[in-house]
């Protein structure tokens, strides 16, 4: 979790990833942020986030992103 938080904070330094739980629903992350996050996660965790995975429930919180990473790693 800490590793992911550090990574996300580097991509979007102005966003409080610990506190915010509706990053997409509340419009905190825009489409550019999402693409940047997807590219970083793919590279860092050696996974392949597909366009099918770009759902608000997968990116609304750091926990949701972590779960997505684990799901894709276990596939």
């Amino acid at each position: 979790m800490d590793e992911l938080l550090k990574l996300l904070s580097e991509i979007c330094p102005k966003v409080d990833f610990v506190k915010e739980k509706k990053l997409i629903d509340d419009g905190i992350l825009d489409s550019f942020d999402i693409i940047s996050i997807v590219n970083e996660l793919n590279e860092h965790y050696d996974i392949e986030i597909d366009v099918d995975d770009l759902e608000p429930e997968n990116f609304n919180s750091v926990e949701a992103m972590l779960e997505l990473i684990h799901t894709l790693q276990n596939e």
């Binding site: 693409i35 590219n39 770009l54």
Partner: peptide, 18 residues
């Protein structure tokens, strides 16, 4: 965003370009 921007931005082509 859903049907053009996202698919293009995270496509293999985009990764190769990067």
């Amino acid at each position: 965003r859903e049907y053009v921007f996202y698919p293009l931005s995270i496509s293999r082509g985009a990764q190769k370009l990067t």
